[in-house]
Design a binder for these strands. Structure first.
Lengths: 108, 108
DNA sequence: CAGACTCATAACTCTGTAGTTATGATTTAG
DNA sequence: CTAAATCATAACTACAGAGTTATGAGTCTG
């Protein structure tokens, strides 16, 4: 049960600001905290906290270089999310299949 | 930009209780509010509110029958989620490709 | 019709957390 | 060495929302 992983994933990506930061890192690649803070509309400490949460969920990694920290996205982490979705759809389809089977048996 | 759809999706599935309800509907199929309330550990009004949120996000549909309401999962709605994930991974890979191309050109 | 059942809504409380400002720890520049 | 720059942490505030109880609306039973 990877529920624990996807649990943290959903919780982390639930916040719009945090998700916007992650999206930008996916589009633009590695960025410093300063550059990320720019268009977000929130303060630098707020951005740092969001980056900390994303890192805790394994969605980003950081690399210190002098006095600046570079963050980059780790989209592979989204696998636990798509896995969960696939699993949910699977349960649903299997139910349809068994229903179909039942109807077929009733037909005979 | 399907950001609006996936925005609501993430927000809705962000709550553990709500996600547990959705998972159960995927596994067990159509259920009444009463049956859903059972193992959740929360009150019936709380469950009703969660079901309302799930319905608003298009993740479940309801069917009234006498004095009881039957809810069932709509896993197709998860498409906007996996689409978003695919898009994010796509941005990332495209960046790797262009980096690779750049390195190749520098090699020559 | 009276009463039990199922669900939704209203009104309210309370906790989690996203935001703030202030400050400290490092690092670069002059 | 002093000052500016970059980021993280601490302490605090404020609000969204998940939970509660109480109640209403609609439905079946006897």
């Amino acid at each position: 049960m990877t529920t624990a992983a996807s649990d943290l994933m959903f919780k982390t990506l639930g916040d719009p600001t945090r998700r916007a930061i992650f999206e930008r890192l996916c589009r633009e690649g590695e960025l410093t905290v300063w550059k990320i803070t720019g268009p977000t509309g929130v303060s630098q400490p707020a951005v740092s906290k969001h980056l900390g949460a994303l890192k805790l969920a394994g969605l980003v990694k950081d690399r210190r270089e002098g006095r600046e920290t570079h963050y980059s996205a780790q989209p592979q982490a989204l696998a636990s999310l798509t896995d969960w979705a696939r699993q949910m759809t699977g349960f649903w389809e299997r139910r349809l299949d068994s229903l179909e089977g039942l109807l077929n048996r009733m037909d005979q």
